[in-house]
């Protein structure tokens, strides 16, 4: 079993500097998706890249301290729930599923603007879901399953030695 030592100062410093910019850029990509290439998926992947950088530079534990697997799964569910929830709201408000024009009375805007805001809402949901889903997959696949302090003690019994890291 290889144990990696995460002490490369240059990498860590560069990451520390880069990560805020990456995240800001990702938020821009999500929010500005209406006017330029971009959107929830692209932005979400960039956000994942930021988290993945932490993982690469500092190791699993510091990354998991920021967001552990359990939180990632729940946030991922929340992201999809935002999307489906907006759709369901439209349905409950009397339209068909995902008919954003039903948001207009709620937001006090015109129908086209309501549609635009609806798109923004779902893009945020997509961004959240994609970020956490990719991050969760990375943690599961690349993590070494030994420092599972964050996870459900019931659902995670002792890890098996010999897993790849």
């Amino acid at each position: 079993m290889l144990t990696r030592v995460y002490d490369n100062l240059i990498v860590q410093t560069v990451c520390r500097v880069m990560i805020p910019f990456i995240q800001i850029y990702a938020l821009y990509v999500i929010a500005h998706g209406h006017y330029s290439p971009g959107g929830g998926f692209q932005g979400g992947v960039i956000l994942t890249a930021a988290l993945a950088l932490i993982f690469l530079a500092y190791g699993q534990e510091p990354a998991a301290r920021r967001m552990n697997r359990r939180q990632a799964s729940m946030l991922c569910a929340a992201g999809v729930a935002i999307y489906a929830g907006i759709g369901l709201y439209c349905l409950l408000a009397g339209g068909n599923f995902l008919d954003y024009s039903m948001l207009a009375p709620l937001l006090h805007v015109s129908v086209p603007r309501a549609r635009s805001l609806g798109i923004l809402g779902v893009e945020v949901g997509v961004g959240l879901a994609v970020m956490t889903a990719m991050y969760s997959i990375i943690l599961d696949i690349a993590g070494n399953h030994e420092d599972e302090s964050d996870s459900d003690p019931e659902s995670c019994s002792t890890p098996k030695p010999g897993s790849i890291s």
Binding site: H34, Y35, S36, G39, P112, R115, S116
Partner: peptide, 10 residues
């Protein structure tokens, strides 16, 4: 016109 979103892909 319908969605006020210039990015057609979005």
């Amino acid at each position: 016109e319908k969605t006020e979103t210039p990015n057609l892909v979005t």
